[in-house]
Structure formats: structure tokens, C-alpha cells
Design a protein around this nucleic acid. Structure first.
Lengths: 221, 221
DNA sequence: GGAAATTGTTACAGTTCTGTTACAGAATTT
DNA sequence: AAATTCTGTAACAGAACTGTAACAATTTCC
């Protein structure tokens, strides 16, 4: 089923413009011309993402977002007017995921939406073919059988899974899992991959070698 | 190999700040404090993305971007000052892919960069008559059946596909896929083409021989 | 048709790369 | 402080990759 995006803006023209391009990208859309209706829709409908204009006559975007956040972790993209002061820390605390400055090109908006969904989707998938990663508990298990990973092994595994399906070079891995100013041997990565694979047992095939490049985590289809 | 980002800004402080966070994200960086040096670096080095400050004393960001666009399709992120009027249509025509308003949080900047690369990478996930090349995963597949290519074979194939429809001489291929200072036998290219064709199976006809010259990748219409 | 040029194919040896293990020092726990 | 665990490096063996050469097949040109 298509993802549904709720567009909240008091201007019909803007709503239609946005809806037009999102539909073209393959999304379903809902519309609300004020905060109250937006919140009602959120309670009733299954909505995957909200695009929210800051400037609205009744309740402004910030208020709607704050209300929304009490009930949901739905991603929010804010539309801000050019020149409008935006306190990024405030926005972050409220739980805005992205902004787009008006006027915007449809290209930019749809790109943001796509990128945000990709991010959410990858964050959600914490079970890979029977390998479960509980980030809150910092615990990894295979078929409810807990794995005893060292700190580095855990960090390495989560970096791989967070970028599941992507080729990661040894340098990239070293930069991320160790640190950007760590100047160690690239082969260190290999050793840790080896240790990780050993502990992964028959799930070790999830960690694929890319010869001459690095590694890739891959949940088989 | 890491993606390389060129940072163009006249202020050392800003450059270092940006470079710091990008390196932490696993990118390599290059720096230029003016447009001329930026263009020189672009000609010499392999650069995947440019971050460009609009306000610079010699050539402003727009000029640099326009020059750059004559020679390359590298994605560009513009740094604009808050309150600075930006004509988005103008920027779009010049070929700017994203902006970030100063002052910005590193989080916002790196998020933009990551999102842009994701977009580029997924756009790049090209399909040629059933042959799919996923550059992010560094993976090639035919009808969802993954091919096991060696590093050279992969590089060769992507070089061919990136120049799809163009005749490439053996020397040109050797210069690009090997390196410009590699002095090997031209027939080495033939051998690798042969290996590649073998692995491509019934898609091998995509790689055409140009007698007396070299090869050409051609997606049939 | 036949010679020359060009390309396809295969084999092989040298090189590079990766998996694995061992070990010593560092960090952590007891 | 001792014991245990963790970590980074080095070393080695085996596997994969690569470049060259030699020969076969094909195309071009006379």
C-alpha cells in the first residue's frame, strides 16, 4: 500500500501544488487547512508523514507539531518562509525532522520526503533474518538466543546493519566505528569482522566481503 | 574508496568546521579558499560533491557554480547567509542541488550531504536492459540474480556504463580503470572484457567491440 | 581466396587480498 | 593487584585476481 502524507497548510494553492507532486511520486495524500483538522485526521487515518506549514492563522505549525508529538513519532517536515527566523534547537526539541524553505522547488520537497522515508525505514528494520538488534538494551540475539559481543563487535555490527545493503569500505568502517582521527591498520577491520562472524554462527553470511573494497551487511530476501 | 567532498569557502574557520564533521561521517575532504583553486582541484582530483559558500571576495559561489557546470555534473550544496535573498529558480537553473542556511548545525549539513548522496546513489542505480548496477551496494545483478565480479571487472563495467553509447579506446579504458600512469599491455583490456562478457552471460552483447579502436557499452533500445 | 591485422580465448605464473590464528599490551573487572 | 577480557598488529596459508603470452578465430583488405 502507498504511504500516506498529510499536508497541512491554509493555502489551497500550496496544498494542491504539493499534493500534485507527491502523487506523481507515488504517494497518497490527505489535506488539512488548519491544525485542528490535522489532529483529527491524525487520530483517524493511517498517516506516514506530515508536511506542516509554520505560518497558519489558527494554530501555527509549531503548536500542531507539539500536539502531534504527544501521540506519535510520525516524521514531520516543516515549511518555513524565507527569511523567517528558525531556532534549530527549538525545532529539534519539538521533533521536527526536516524543513523546507518556501518558495521551494518540487524537486527539493519530494527529495526530502523520499530521503526521510528511507531513513525511517532503515531505522525501523531491527530484525534481519532472525538476527535481532535491540539498540535500547544494546543486545543482539539470534532466535531469542543472546549473543555476547564485545563493545567493538557491537558497534561494528550496528554500523553494518544501519547501512544494510550498502558497500562500506574499510576506511569508512574505521572512521565510523573507531573514529575519524584514528590511524590504525585497515586490516584491524578484518580481524573484527572475523570475530563477529564467528559469533554470528550460521548468520555469518549476512556479512559479505566485497573484495578489494570492504564489507556489506545483507539481509537475504 | 571514500567519497571526496570539496569545501569552498574563504573563511578557514568555516572550512575546518565543515571538514571536521564530514570526516567524522567517513568522507574525505579537500579545501579551496577561492573559486579559481576550486576549479583547478576539480580538474585534477576526483571529487564527488562540492560545498560552496555564496559570499566570497573574488568569484562568488554562483560564478564558481556556473563555471563548474560547464564541465561536470557534480552535485553542489550552497551555503547561504540567513536573510540573504535566494532566487530558487535562478539557483535551480544554475544547477544547485541543495542549500544550507548559515549559521547551520553540523547535524543539518551532514544530513543534507548524506541525503544528497543517497539520492544520487539511488538515481545511479541504473538498469540497462535487465542489467542492474547498484553503486551504493557495489553490486551488479541480472534479473535479481547477483553477479560475482572482481574489482577490476566491476570498475570496468561501471566505466563502460557511465559512458554508455560512447566509443572508448583501449588506451582510454586503461587510463581510467587502471590509472593514467599505468603502462601495461593494451590487450589486458581485451582479457578483462572477455572475463566480463563471460560473467554477463546472455547480456554480453551489451559490450560491443569497435574494431581497431576499443569497446562500447550499448543498451539496446 | 589468401595474407595480414585484429580480436577472442585459454592457460599459467606472479601478485594481491582475505581469513585465520597467535600473541602481547591495554583496558576492565573482580 | 591479579585475573579476565578486549583489542590491535603481525604472520602465514590459501584463495582470488591479474597481466602476459600464446594460439585460435574472425575480419579486413588486396
Amino acid at each position: 500500500m502507498n504511504k500516506t502524507i498529510l499536508i497541512v497548510d491554509d493555502e489551497l494553492r500550496i496544498r494542491k501544488l504539493i499534493a500534485d507532486f507527491l502523487v506523481r511520486e507515488g504517494y497518497s495524500t490527505l489535506e488539512a487547512d488548519n491544525g485542528r483538522i490535522a489532529l483529527e485526521l491524525l487520530a483517524k487515518e493511517h498517516i506516514d508523514l506530515v508536511i506542516l506549514d509554520v505560518m497558519m492563522p489558527k494554530d501555527d505549525g509549531w503548536t500542531v507539531c507539539k500536539e502531534l508529538r504527544k501521540k506519535s513519532n510520525i516524521p514531520v517536515i516543516m515549511l518555513t518562509a524565507r527569511g523567517e527566523e528558525v531556532d534549530q534547537l527549538f525545532a529539534f526539541e519539538i521533533g521536527v525532522d526536516e524543513y523546507v524553505t518556501k518558495p521551494f522547488s518540487p524537486k527539493v520537497l519530494t527529495a526530502r520526503v523520499n530521503a526521510l522515508f528511507r531513513r525511517i525505514d532503515t531505522e525501523k528494520a531491527n530484525v534481519y533474518d532472525g538476527l535481532e538488534i535491540n539498540t535500547a538494551a544494546r543486545q543482539v540475539s539470534i532466535n531469542d538466543h543472546s549473543l555476547d559481543l564485545s563493545p567493538k563487535e557491537y558497534e561494528l555490527l550496528t554500523y553494518l546493519t544501519e547501512n544494510s545493503g550498502k558497500a562500506l569500505s574499510r576506511q569508512q568502517i574505521l572512521n565510523q566505528v573507531w573514529s575519524y582521527d584514528y590511524f590504525g591498520d585497515l586490516r584491524t577491520v578484518d580481524t573484527h569482522i572475523n570475530r563477529l562472524r564467528t559469533k554470528l554462527g550460521d548468520k555469518s553470511t549476512l556479512v559479505q566481503t566485497i573484495r578489494g573494497y570492504g564489507y556489506r551487511f545483507e539481509a537475504e530476501k
